[in-house]
Design a protein around this nucleic acid. Structure first.
Lengths: 288, 288
DNA sequence: GATATTATCTGACCGTGGTCAGAGAAATCG
DNA sequence: CGATTTCTCTGACCACGGTCAGATAATATC
């Protein structure tokens, strides 16, 4: 614990310098950060607010300021004219690039103070800490299967299966799942999000006292091996248990090795086929 | 660079939770932090201000606030009645312990979100990052040899020599150095500080165009291997060069293996004895 | 003993981040 | 269609961290 606290102190003190590089631009830090987050492709204000965790009033003020400085243009979405789309002007793009440069400069300055012989070790350790800590920023929530984030994850899931299964994957020929079956009390969907961006999902079909079914487990490839799948699994198990299920079933394809490994480690044991899902090679069961 | 910036973002977001644990105590964060920094043994306000980097007015206000809350007592130092000594009252001690508890709780919560299998890796990486980054917080300054920080380092230096040399070390029988010789333009003292606490030193005696002498190189044992010695050496070399010296001399004892290694790596080569320093076994020289 | 320096305190001031309630406009639902 | 919800904007408000100049007292220096 003392180690973590010492780490906290050292890092905030040292790496805070990177944030400070956003300062001194005749603009509050928050405004610079917003500008920087908009990016070259522009951004949706609502989505941005979620990502940065800003109050609507505060965000509105920051946007106004950047607009007055001539750094961004604000326009309504054609599809939903309540929403605002933010785009960088030429000046805004230049300023964003300058912020980028300063931030890089600060990062370089930090590294320069470390003896050359230690730099690689530092970078490796930094990468490790970042990866492992990032996983702790993931939170998991129950969502309606029609929620855009769920739809997004399900699509990525299907695409991945199609790419990885020998012979591809066609959702139509698989035992399909309609939204009602994944809506409480018939079932559940859970979504894992990193800074409000969906990065994983899982679903549950309940059958009263009969075994519940686990469906559509997927984690963004960039975030695998960090325990996100385990946490999705745990929350679905808790939901199944809370709804009276005593046994959890799932079937999977032999191509999904890391998933199979996850299930085994979570206490699932392989059993004889309990359905005729065409894409399945392994059937698992866990007593809750 | 992108890695460092990503690291910055993740860490400040996640580890910031530790700071937040100081919040919600009906007291601004700064006040809580000050309280926590005072510690069981009390602290000198001046020293505290240096450590936390606070403005005198701001610090004074925080102290007043804690005093009014009955958490600390403020008293003048007997030796220097301008200075203020801060001590925790019973209530203050209890509050500091509570802050400690909350901070530990937050650290534990952070670790709890990491899968057990990854925890050790995370802690190891955290320790590594902390150690290496801490070194970058060290800054080096030229000081008068009579400055308390220099005196402190010289004392630690002499104590260490006494402990490590076979047969001990007696400053009197060594070729002594008086303060004038280390004061510009005759010579220089440099001190390395971590958050304004002295943690290393080095000195230089100039002899015009004749070889300059390197003296009293010392780094706190807890911070060795992080490049502090190298940085002290570099700044002294720069001073020697800037004052017209073409050659740098130093002599050292065989017990100081890591120092000898440092000199060799810095480009010093062993030469025949150029003086009769009784404690020396090795004589080095470097062309600047 | 006069002068400079050091440490603290005080009052005044400021921008920033942040919150809140309410209004208005647009979209969605029944 | 009306009712409700969603998204944004506005104005008002506030604490906090931070800075500055000047006052005061104690100490160090010459």
């Amino acid at each position: 614990m003392a180690l973590i606290r010492r780490f906290n102190r050292t890092v905030t003190e040292r790496v805070g310098a990177l944030e400070d590089s956003f300062l001194g631009r005749d603009r509050p830090l928050g405004a610079s950060r917003l500008l920087w987050e908009i990016g070259e492709d522009g951004a949706d204000l609502h989505e941005l607010r979620g990502r940065l965790g800003l109050d609507s009033g505060y965000a509105s003020r920051l946007v106004r300021r950047l607009e007055n400085e001539g750094l961004i243009v604000v326009e309504a979405y054609p599809t939903d004219r309540r929403r605002r789309r933010l785009r960088l002007t030429a000046a805004g793009l230049a300023e964003a690039r300058e912020l980028d440069r300063l931030s890089n400069l600060a990062a370089t300055a930090l590294l320069d103070k470390v003896p050359v012989s230690n730099r690689e070790r530092l970078l490796a350790a930094i990468a490790e800490v970042e990866r492992l800590l990032r996983a702790t920023l993931v939170d998991i929530a129950v969502e309606d299967p029609r929620h855009p984030d769920v739809v997004y994850c399900f699509t990525r899931y299907a695409n991945e299966l199609d790419a990885r299964f020998a012979g591809g994957f066609d959702a139509g020929s698989s035992s399909s799942v309609n939204p009602e079956e994944l809506t409480p009390p018939a079932g559940y969907c859970v979504v894992a999000r990193l800074r409000s961006l969906p990065i994983g999902c899982g679903a549950l079909k309940l059958h009263g006292a009969a075994p519940a079914e686990l469906k559509r487990m997927w984690v963004d490839p960039r975030l695998r091996g960090l325990g996100v799948g385990r946490r999705l699994l745990e929350s679905l198990e808790a939901l199944a248990r809370g709804n009276g299920a005593r046994v959890l079933h799932l079937e999977t394809n032999r191509a999904l090795e890391e998933a199979i490994e996850l299930y085994r480690r979570a206490g699932f044991v392989e059993v004889a086929p309990f359905n005729d899902e065409p894409y399945a090679h392994h059937w698992f069961e866990k007593l809750l």
